[in-house]
């Protein structure tokens, strides 16, 4: 026991002071060296604004975007709380998620903000909003059809069960 303690003492000391193993330290230092080398070049220009974009992307995502969609989802779940089966919420949640995802990715085009688009590409810019609304409508309609079908199937099964001789409860 004491021999082994002797052998690992330097590592043990590092772990005590640093809190992690030597591999972690080496990997992170190498990563920071690369990040520093590229980062100096990244920030060459409007450095402050670029740094704000870089860190801001993480902060906006974690502190605004995620809470926003979590709140919407919570509101949905609260509304679904009155339902017989909570899983029905997914017939709203899935189309809303897919539609929201399209809007998130293609926000500039869908909202018609890209002024140079038509002049540059000779393509119409107004189509994206129409397409998004159409796809959104189709997603919700599809979910509704699935939901109603499922409901019918359950109803048929339930009535089939009722026709069988009653089982002692």
């Amino acid at each position: 026991m004491s021999g082994r303690t002797q052998a690992i003492r330097p590592m043990g000391r590092l772990r005590r002071w640093y809190g992690e193993g030597p591999l972690q330290l080496l990997v992170l230092l190498a990563s920071f060296a690369l990040a520093g080398y590229a980062g100096v070049r990244l920030l060459d220009g409007d450095g402050l604004l670029i740094a704000v974009w870089f860190a801001g992307a993480a902060l906006v995502h974690d502190l605004l975007f995620v809470p926003a969609y979590a709140l919407v989802d919570r509101a949905l779940r609260t509304a679904a709380g009155r339902l017989e089966r909570k899983e029905w919420i997914n017939f709203v949640r899935v189309p809303a998620f897919l539609s929201g995802l399209l809007l998130l990715v293609w926000f500039p085009l869908v909202t018609g903000q890209v002024e140079r688009y038509e002049a540059a590409t000779a393509l119409p810019a107004g189509v994206f909003l129409v397409r998004w609304l159409t796809v959104t409508g189709a997603l919700f309609a599809g979910a509704a059809v699935c939901g109603v079908t499922l409901l019918q199937v359950r109803r048929v099964r339930r009535s089939a069960r009722k026709q069988r001789p009653p089982v002692v409860h």
Binding site: A33, L42, D44, L49, P108, A120
Partner: peptide, 23 residues
């Protein structure tokens, strides 16, 4: 989407940003 909102030219931002990210 041709929406050049980012602070600077796309090439250096996306290239150097990629190296920081990849590290």
């Amino acid at each position: 989407q041709l929406e050049y909102l980012f602070p600077g030219s796309f090439y250096p931002l996306h290239f150097y940003g990629a190296w920081v990210f990849f590290g």
